[in-house]
Design a protein around this nucleic acid. Structure first.
Lengths: 72, 72
DNA sequence: CACAACAATGACATATTTGTCAGTATTTGT
DNA sequence: ACAAATACTGACAAATATGTCATTGTTGTG
């Protein structure tokens, strides 16, 4: 089902974003202060992130969207 | 500004999706019948597409998200 | 255990995407 | 130019992402 595929995708994105954040040693709150993105629900795969939100985060983490999805 | 960067990103995504669709020789309506995605507003860069919507389209076009953004 | 820092979750408000459909504009082929 | 196909746009409803704040749960450290 498409729903299941989406859940898997969102889960992968969630884990990847969490890993990027932790690599920088930031708390969710600190990341919010830097990017204005509330990450909690994204990191728990509750939200179907918009492309501009993901783009903003990738910019902050110095990774291209292509790179982000390559090692997903 | 972030707004401008988003507009550029959405414009690139729009053009890329249109090119993929036209490569398959499909009208917007035909693509909708295949994917259940209304593409008109996305191809005119009016919408900030969600990741699962883009993923669905990439699946249909047989291109990975990483590939999609690589040649953006 | 107790405390502190952090993450997860619920509730609510706001903004935006998407579906849907109708109407208009544009393109394409003859 | 004409007709048909296609694309674009506006309006409305429904679903959902995100902001915001409060509360609860978790984790690590003394």
């Amino acid at each position: 089902m498409a729903q299941v595929r989406d859940e898997i995708l969102l889960q992968k994105i969630a884990l990847k974003l969490k890993a990027l954040r932790e690599k920088k040693g930031l708390s969710q709150e600190q990341l919010y202060n830097e990017t204005d993105v509330h990450i909690a629900r994204i990191e728990t795969a509750k939200n179907n992130i918009r492309i501009s939100t993901l783009s903003k985060l990738c910019d902050y983490f110095d990774i291209s969207l292509s790179e982000f999805f390559k090692k997903l």
